[in-house]
Design a protein around this nucleic acid. Structure first.
Lengths: 189, 189
DNA sequence: TCCAATCTGTAACGACCACTACACAAAGCC
DNA sequence: GGCTTTGTGTAGTGGTCGTTACAGATTGGA
């Protein structure tokens, strides 16, 4: 499995991956050159390629890391909250915070990268499934259009990320979240 | 003023500018190379540079053209509609149509280009001014937070453009628009 | 201590980038 | 028909892109 012989790596792979993730997050895949990455990480090209493969593989790993750290709040909310309403409220509220955390790129890496349509749609599907479940179990009125509501949530989150990238404040994003939440259908009594 | 002597231009400047605009619209500024533009327009680099200047100037002119054509519906709505509510309803409704028109790039050029924060903020300011005017003239309740409402509209439009880029249908965008509009404050009776 | 294996730094690779020098073609004016 | 002016096509410019060949450094095992 792991190498037992040979010179040891001169950098912390996780640290470098985090720096790379932030670079891609801030500037996007195309606008971030390998030269930029070697400059910010201090790791020379051959070492970077040996550790991560080519630029696309490095980006893929950065995205995976993002989803498991900075962007994990969405999956957590869907997993831990009892109802779709609770989950979406938490997603929007935490998005306002996460998208405007100081000393980090603003907005969401996945929502900002044109090439990540897959992960985006997966997130929307997960929200939609949670809504559908609540409709099926009588938490939400039977007339609720799960797809429509999930698409609206997707639009809201995307709007929040875009605004954050343009420098919107945390308070402004919180207001967007609160306004969007006000359209949520009243639960079945 | 205009040149009276010399060889005439071998292409229609407006046609080429439209093709260039669509290329930037579809792929973005960075991802669109001058070689791409010469290929799609059939105009060789020296002619392109003579007619439009460098790539940045060409992009600026493409953006200006977009604002006066494909993207003019926003300014028109703000200009022609009597109230902020009417204007925003029309903006969202027409956005659903414009962002999903066949044989065109999807979404909005200005909302998709990271470098166009200026025009984006101008649009939000215009909406905000319209709302503020309605509050001042008693059309909207005096407690209405014009900034908050305008930012929410901005978030909605950005969300719609982002969804359109990912392939959302016109009906889905219409639903987003309708849902967002449902938060609009009731007018003063 | 010598070897095989792995990593590192230098220095390049060909491909593409935005951009242009230059010679020639086409236009109006005399 | 000259002459000036302007656009076109060819063929490049230097620079940056992602990627890697290669030689030297560093490691554990024999």
């Amino acid at each position: 499995m792991s190498a037992v012989v040979g010179r040891k790596r001169g950098f912390d792979r996780d640290d470098v991956l985090d720096q790379v993730t932030r670079a891609f997050w801030r500037d996007g895949y195309q606008a971030t050159s390998v030269a930029d990455l070697t400059a910010t990480t201090g790791v020379n090209p051959p070492s970077l390629y040996a550790a991560f493969g080519d630029k696309q593989a490095l980006f893929a790993e950065a995205v995976a890391r993002y989803q498991q750290t900075y962007g994990a709040f969405t999956a957590r909310a869907l997993d831990e909250e009892p109802t779709a309403r609770h989950a979406v409220e938490r997603i929007l509220t935490e998005a306002a915070i996460e998208y405007t955390t100081p000393d980090r790129p603003k907005g969401c890496l996945i929502l900002s990268a044109p090439e990540l349509t897959g992960p985006r749609d997966q997130a929307r599907q997960a929200v939609e499934a949670k809504i559908r479940h609540d409709v099926a179990t009588g938490v939400l009125p039977s007339g609720t259009d799960a797809h429509r509501l999930a698409v609206f949530v997707a639009a809201t989150v995307r709007g929040m990320s875009s605004l954050a990238r343009d420098g919107a404040t945390r308070a402004e994003l919180h207001d967007v979240a609160r306004t969007a939440l006000s359209v949520w259908p009243a639960p079945v009594p």
